[in-house]
């Protein structure tokens, strides 16, 4: 695809006006055009939530799975055809609540996937309940007295779980988001990008203004190969204290690179082979 328009479908986005998902959609399309991601080399997977609708608005082959289950589907795709760029769109409730286990294990295996978390601190498609990234005390339909739980930290979780590329971006900064999506995809191994995404309709705390006032970019002095430093930076959150950028990036063979069966070709390059069992049968006689 050489033009953004070629990536458009005839489906009009169903998100609320001003939704952070529009920015993520734009950044992704920019990145796709820049890098030539098309239907011969790229596949998208999403879970269920506001984020999942994105698949209807990008003319790239995709799999709309179940709530929380985008990562295992993406893993299966990558193992079957590791030459594809495999993107996993997930929500914070979807990927950190329902599917948290899959994220942890995909990180530790270092599958060559690009995981983009649409992190709005809420279950918005179900009209605004507290999600795993909502702050303590947060009032929502499911927590009218204030959220009794403390939030999960997606960046720290991904680093601790073994992801080899971990970044955080603020959705509205489309050029930066485009750049990070490209870098995440170019990274060989598990890339997790936590995208801070305002929800105008239901989240009155994590607004554009909040993120504009409180985020800052990690400087050139940040050393992304130092896990301890990355982890320490990941703990920062608060007034003018939300770091953005690449926290952690190290070179390590991906799961797929390490698998002998995938050295020469993909699993699907040859048609399934009707195998001769003569030798195997001998083991049972």
């Amino acid at each position: 695809m050489s033009k953004i328009e070629e990536l458009n479908t005839n489906i009009f986005p169903t998100w609320c006006p001003g939704c952070g998902n529009f920015a993520i959609l734009s950044a992704f399309k920019n990145a796709a055009v820049q890098k030539g991601w098309d239907n011969s080399n790229t596949v998208l997977v999403a879970g269920i939530g506001c984020h999942g609708n994105i698949l209807n608005f990008i003319k790239l082959t995709s799999f709309e799975g179940l709530h929380g289950r985008s990562i295992p589907v993406a893993t299966g795709i990558k193992l079957a055809n590791h030459r594809l760029n495999v993107f996993c769109f997930m929500g914070d409730g979807d990927g950190l609540g329902e599917g948290g286990n899959h994220l942890v294990h995909a990180c530790r295996r270092n599958h060559d996937l690009t995981v983009l978390i649409h992190d709005n601190g809420l279950y918005s498609l179900t009209t605004g309940q507290t999600s795993p990234t909502a702050p303590h005390g947060f009032k929502s339909k499911s927590t009218p007295l204030g959220n009794p739980d403390y939030p999960v930290n997606p960046v720290a979780l991904a680093i601790a779980s073994g992801s080899t590329f971990v970044a955080r971006v603020y959705a509205a900064n489309i050029p930066k988001l485009t750049e990070i999506i490209i870098k995440a995809n170019e990274h060989k191994g598990m890339s997790v990008v936590d995208i801070l995404q305002p929800c105008f309709t239901f989240n009155k705390e994590y607004t554009n203004q909040f993120y504009q006032q409180n985020t800052y970019w990690l400087g050139e002095d940040h050393d992304p190969i130092n896990k301890e430093v990355a982890f320490k930076k990941a703990q920062e959150w608060g007034e003018k204290q939300i770091p953005l950028g690449i926290f952690y990036q190290v070179e390590k063979p991906s799961f797929e690179e390490d698998l002998p069966q995938l050295k020469e070709k993909t699993l699907i390059e040859d048609a399934p082979l009707q195998r001769d069992l003569t030798e195997l049968f001998k083991k049972y006689s």
């Binding site: 799999f63 289950r69 589907v73 893993t75 299966g76 594809l84």
Partner: peptide
């Protein structure tokens, strides 16, 4: 698996098992 060229993957749970198998099948395997 190595000798015959297919992939067996031990997943983290059965939910992952079936979704991985679905993903691989969707991709043509």
């Amino acid at each position: 698996q190595e000798q015959l060229g297919y992939v067996y993957k031990q997943p983290e749970d059965e939910i992952s098992a079936i979704n991985m198998a679905i993903g691989a099948s969707f991709a043509g395997a």
